[in-house]
């Protein structure tokens, strides 16, 4: 898989459904035949990828929200988002 860069445009496919589960009291990610419990950071990323979005914009938004340097956010985020890409729950699309 190609390494992730700030210029990549990412999107969460419509079939990877993020849902606030009232019965369980926390968000769930619904994908084919599985229910996954995303960590809070993953939820923040997935919420921002409902429509095609530059990965760099996601990093910058989280850096602003957390008042943290963008390069630190990027270092934290890239393995997480790469994992989502590998599993297909986030897709890279052409510009």
């Amino acid at each position: 898989m190609q390494p992730l860069t700030r210029n990549d445009i990412l999107v969460r496919p419509s079939w990877a459904r993020l849902k606030a589960c009232k019965v369980r009291g926390h968000p769930v990610l619904l994908v084919p035949e599985q229910v996954l419990y995303p960590c809070p950071t993953t939820v923040e990323v997935l919420e921002r990828l409902e429509s095609p979005t530059l990965y760099g914009a996601v990093i910058d938004a989280l850096a602003a929200d957390y008042d943290a340097p963008a390069d630190v956010i990027e270092t934290d985020l890239t393995p997480l988002v790469s994992g989502l890409l590998e599993q297909g729950y986030v897709r890279r699309i052409d510009a």
């Binding site: 229910v35 995303p38 960590c39 950071t41 993953t42 934290d76 994992g83 729950y89």
Partner: peptide, 25 residues
């Protein structure tokens, strides 16, 4: 920002031992 894991599968029952399990599917 540092979380132990990205995605976790649910625990087997999602509930205290004495209660009825939460239905998953």
């Amino acid at each position: 920002m540092s979380d132990a894991s990205t995605l976790e599968r649910p625990a087997d029952t999602d509930r205290p031992a004495a209660e009825t399990p939460v239905l998953l599917g």
